[in-house]
Amino acid sequence: MKTIPKIVVVSTALVLMLVADIPLLPVRLVPEAQAIFGVWRRTARRCVVIGSAVAVSSATAAAATQTAVAQQQAAAAQKQAAAAQQQAAAAQKEAAAAQHQAAAAAPPSPVAAAAGQPLPLGTVVPMLPAGCITTPVGGVEYYYCGGNFYRAVFQGNNLVYVTAQPK
């Protein structure tokens, strides 16, 4: 009988002590720690934070500066590690560039597949389907193809084509 409360207390204490390392709990040591330098940083920053929390009593500007210095060192160290990884990445980059060229060269116009059917007015496509005929109407250039009239417009910085009714 006496052992039951003992077990309860011990296990409660253990759970409480583990709180710091359970990521799913709402109480976390460093929220979004990896937002700065990826997963490595999580470890580095946690050490810094725990270290400075010891001197938590006087939360003065001096403490803030200490933390800043420690984080600066951590950032500098990680920068070196990143430089090492960069070499490995360089080799892969060439392959990626080749694929990007291939992706850009391919005509990925999903609307072109639907050519022949009238599209709702105001439909925006990144490029004209093949075989459009240029027809100026009222000083505006329209492109007619697949049963649709298109007009060139800037959508932000991008030149796109939008289906329209010539008038």
């Binding site: 709180v19 710091a20 976390r28 929390a53 800043a68």
Partner: peptide, 30 residues
């Protein structure tokens, strides 16, 4: 006594966790 001691340890752990949480959100602006 044992229970009290263990409870104290648990509470201490929690308070340290909470205080570091608060600390992590304090701006560090050099």
């Amino acid at each position: 006594r044992m229970a009290a001691a263990l409870l104290a340890v648990g509470v201490l752990t929690l308070s340290v966790t909470v205080s570091t949480e608060v600390r992590a959100q304090t701006p560090v602006v050099d």
